[in-house]
Design a protein around this nucleic acid. Structure first.
Lengths: 227, 227
DNA sequence: CGGTAGATTTCGTGA
DNA sequence: TCACGAAGTCTACCG
């Protein structure tokens, strides 16, 4: 049954599991979803609940008290809600909800750069997307004008981590016969200054790419949502 | 005014900003908090809203439509909500909500290990917490029984990243006069197998620490929540 | 089920 | 304000 239950109550919420957390007594909003999720929201603190339990859960309810348990191996996670006063308690049937359609995440950036790899570096042409190594796939494997391999790591925002990730891959790739001279390129919409410095000190080229420009170069009717 | 407005409505939600996302028409729960946050929840998909806008926001409302805007430099983020049918629209005053008190996060682990550094390695004694390097502070700097420096990186869960973070620090520390022989130790409640392998291949010692044991060794009345 | 990487990450802290 | 690192991260994907 696809429904959401909303309770506005004065309550105290205690979480024990990976850590211990106490939410002192106050008016709060409890949201209980049909998949067993329990969210405790306040009137501020957007997006993230103050306290919560992700499914699968077992919910025990008695007057003045609600206990939400989650079984995941040895460590028992639980949410103890001590309810002092209930101001509202309603349930809404929600029916089916279609999935979210997204456009513009890293996956799309990779798609666009696979179409025009020269945006990452002059003369580049694509060899393979998701080029496999034994520790995971590199986003793009290309060849440059001098027939040398170039591994491209793509990020929406490139941080130090991205540089490290690319270096891990390069380490492995260069051990592969024929790939000894493989270069690395970090391509991202935004490259953080520290990431750029580390990349340059490791002889990794940085390419900041503009999504709008990339979009302008492809067929307009390929975009998900027309204007 | 500390209040939360809850709307159950059949609606379509479109986000444009860092990416474009479309949520097709369906029954959804809209939560509007007093700080301007707008959350769109479905009956499943716990914790995370399907669509949202973080404060500060400007909300325009007219029959059948709600537009939430956020100004942050050049890129205009906006949430367009086309409302077909409103099933419920209520507002709840929430009063003040005290902050969450936490215990058991990485900060506490660092505190406990600073008190008993020998838990990370035999004969260790603390020199300094948050020992500075030019790329950021190392969690603990210690001396071992042979008067050699040891840098300790503390994590709740240690992944590959943690190893690389520690390696970055060690690189810098060892360039400092007097610290040329500085060793590294990775201390965590949980060390992922791959992280352990990488650490060992880089001659970094791994120490899995038990929070309960550490707790048992300190003054009982220092704990946040008594039993 | 465990591990890795992405996220409109969000959130806090320190410079 | 900006940048970095933690998070009960959560979530999707791949083995």
């Amino acid at each position: 049954m696809a429904a959401v239950r909303l309770i506005v109550a004065r309550c105290e919420v205690r979480y024990t599991g990976r850590l211990a957390a106490l939410l002192p007594e106050a008016l709060r909003l409890l949201m209980i979803k049909s998949d067993g999720s329990v969210l405790v929201h306040a009137d501020t603190g957007s997006y993230k609940p103050q306290n919560w339990m992700t499914p699968p859960t077992v919910i025990e309810e008695e007057p003045g008290r609600m206990v939400v348990r989650r079984r995941a191996g040895a460590s028992e996670d639980r949410l103890d809600i001590r309810i002092v006063e209930v101001l509202s308690d309603v349930e809404h049937d929600m029916g089916e909800a279609a999935a979210l359609e997204k456009e513009g995440a890293e996956a799309e950036l990779q798609e666009l750069l696979a179409e025009t790899p020269e945006r990452c570096g002059e003369g580049l042409r694509l060899v393979k997307r998701e080029f496999p190594t034994d520790i995971g796939p590199v986003d793009l494997m290309c060849l440059d004008g001098e027939e040398a391999y170039v591994a491209v790591e793509i990020k929406r925002v490139a941080t130090l981590e991205a540089v490290e990730q690319l270096c891990r891959y390069l380490e492995r790739i260069r051990e592969t016969p024929g790939f000894g001279g493989c270069r690395g390129i970090l391509a991202a919409q935004v490259i953080k200054p520290q990431a750029r410095r580390l990349a340059e000190s490791r002889h990794i080229h940085c390419a900041e790419v503009d999504l709008a420009v990339l979009h302008g170069e492809r067929e307009p009717d390929l975009t998900l949502f027309a204007a």
